[in-house]
Design a protein around this nucleic acid. Structure first.
Length: 462
RNA sequence: GGCGUCGUACCCAAGCGGUCUAAGGGGCCGGUUUGCAAAACCGUUAUUCGCCGGUUCGAAUCCGGCCGACGCCUCCA
């Protein structure tokens, strides 16, 4: 099955054809760094990580850009509230964000452009939109995009703007504009913006939110590129506005594939900072979650389905991670890597088909687990061949390069623990089971699990 | 008001008109193995897919209605 994705723009699955053979330009909407990111944010980033890893597995040369929104209403508000400079706030949360990404084993983007460093590009884009008559200026120095000048407005979300009810939030908007739905490209300076200000040909101020993604994506990936991702909540208005700005400014198609991940739910409701119901990564760490277990919980459901994050699911994730990691160790101890001849087992093609079909991770996992069971069974019965062992290794390594569920089992065994192991082995050789069980208990208290196998004691860290 | 999603075993979750006598994972129970334990493997766990009708030779899958949960509609991933 050829690689295909559900393209929000077309509302159907479409075979993926990159603009340039073998290469993929990928833009993923990054965080607004005004606070810690939460597990809901990371669901989207995890989906994007899976997408990227799959593209890399298929040997695409991926250029991944993730923006950092480091100037907007919320960051300014936070800086004012904390009585520090804007960059103090944004640097701090950018750093935490990067640490969380790393901890979650996400492959870093190639470029992390920031909004504040992309102002010149935004200004030139806005100038072009003004020249071409897609935008207009207001007396306060703000510039707005005139959505009625772009007939395709609303195509991504299939919204007919004239039929929309004007929400309270729109009515409360404090900026002047001709039509409520017109959106700001540039916000004229206001008292509360303080030091946060840039000069533009039409007046001082700061950029609107949407323009940064249009500017940064074209800067790094060109005016027309392959894939743009984000959470469903960014479809409207953010992505809709990006399309309008970019296409009007460049006269070119903007993004070929729009991929959106669904929300992460918590207790039956959406998780969001404004509702105050969310988990930070640090909180999950304290609860004993591992990165692998979180990865499993986030990727076990399809990216276009709502999933509920739950502490109760920790056990399931832990078990799966342990099973996979044990399987890895088992193959490793049998020197499966040395038997590898570069080919894959039959199950792999099913697995690949499932992943190629719009990243169907639940089914791909089902295929993998099924296959793993048969391999374990063959090893149990001692009927596995060398080539099967080698293929198993290839598949497992490929699988983990895509999902990242396997826990690193390389650890230093402290001297004290090693001594206990030796003591236990001696007791076992003498059939002293009481002593053996006692030491096993001692090890468990110290955080080590010892399993007895036909090859002797196998040590695991809790 | 407009646009859209979902309701499958104890829990999570696939299913896209016939291979569904419904994947896979977790849990439970039973077994093989084992000094014991763990792991691994085998078996059991939904005659049924929110409810009611309809279309069809055939529906969890299509259509209609109802009930229930949820998202977006200007700055929330």
């Amino acid at each position: 099955m050829p690689l295909q994705f559900y393209n929000t723009l077309k509302r159907e699955k479409e075979i993926f054809q990159p603009i340039e053979k073998g290469k993929v330009g990928l833009y993923t909407c990054g965080p607004t760094v005004y606070d810690y990111a939460h597990i809901g944010n990371f669901r989207t980033f995890m989906f994007e990580d899976l997408l990227k890893r799959w593209l890399l597995h298929l040997r695409y040369d991926v250029k991944h850009v993730m923006n950092i929104t480091d100037v907007d209403d919320k960051t300014i508000k936070k800086a004012k509230q904390m009585k520090v400079s804007l960059s103090r706030i944004t640097d701090k949360y950018t750093q935490y964000f990067m640490e969380d990404l790393k901890w979650l084993k996400m492959i870093p983007a190639d470029i992390y452009p920031t909004a504040t460093e992309s102002i010149p590009k935004m200004i030139s884009m806005i100038e072009r939109l003004l020249e071409k008559g897609f935008a207009y200026r207001e007396d306060d120095g703000s510039v707005y995009f005139n959505i009625s000048s772009f007939p395709n407005y609303g195509r991504l979300t299939q919204i007919n703007i004239s039929e929309q009810r004007t929400g309270d939030r729109v009515m409360e908007d404090e900026y002047d504009k001709d039509v409520p739905q017109d959106f700001a490209l540039w916000k004229g300076w206001k008292e509360e913006d303080g030091e946060v200000v840039w000069d533009a040909p039409w007046g001082r101020g700061r950029p609107g939110w949407h323009i940064e993604c249009s500017a940064m994506s074209s800067e790094s990936l060109g005016d027309n590129f392959d894939i743009h991702c984000g959470g469903v909540d960014n479809m409207f208005p953010h992505h809709e506005n990006e399309i309008a700005q970019s296409q009007c400014a460049t006269d070119q198609p903007f993004v070929n594939f729009w991929l959106h991940s669904e929300f992460l739910m918590l207790d039956g409701g959406k998780m969001s900072k404004s509702l105050g119901n969310y988990y930070r990564i640090s909180a999950l760490k304290e609860l004993g979650f591992t990165a692998e277990s979180i990865r499993y919980q986030l990727l076990a459901g399809h990216y276009r389905s709502k999933i509920t994050f739950s502490i109760d699911k920790k056990h399931e994730g832990d078990k799966v991670v342990q099973r996979l990691s044990d399987f890895y160790t088992r193959l490793q101890k049998m020197n499966a890597n040395e038997s590898s001849i570069g080919s894959m087992p039959e199950a792999y093609s099913k697995f690949r088909d499932r992943m190629n079909d719009d990243l169907d991770s639940p089914q791909a996992l089902a295929v993998f687990f099924d296959w793993m069971k048969t391999v374990n069974g063959k090893i149990d019965k001692n009927v596995i061949t060398d080539s099967e062992l080698g293929e198993a290794w290839e598949f497992l390594v490929a699988f983990d390069s895509v999902f990242g569920f396997i826990q690193n089992q390389d650890f230093e065994i402290p001297n004290k623990i090693n001594l206990l192991l030796k003591k236990r082995q001696k007791a076992r050789d003498e059939d002293n089971w009481v002593e053996s069980d006692l030491i096993r208990e001692q090890l468990k208290e110290k955080g080590w699990i010892v399993d007895d196998t036909t090859d002797g004691q196998n040590l695991k860290k809790v």
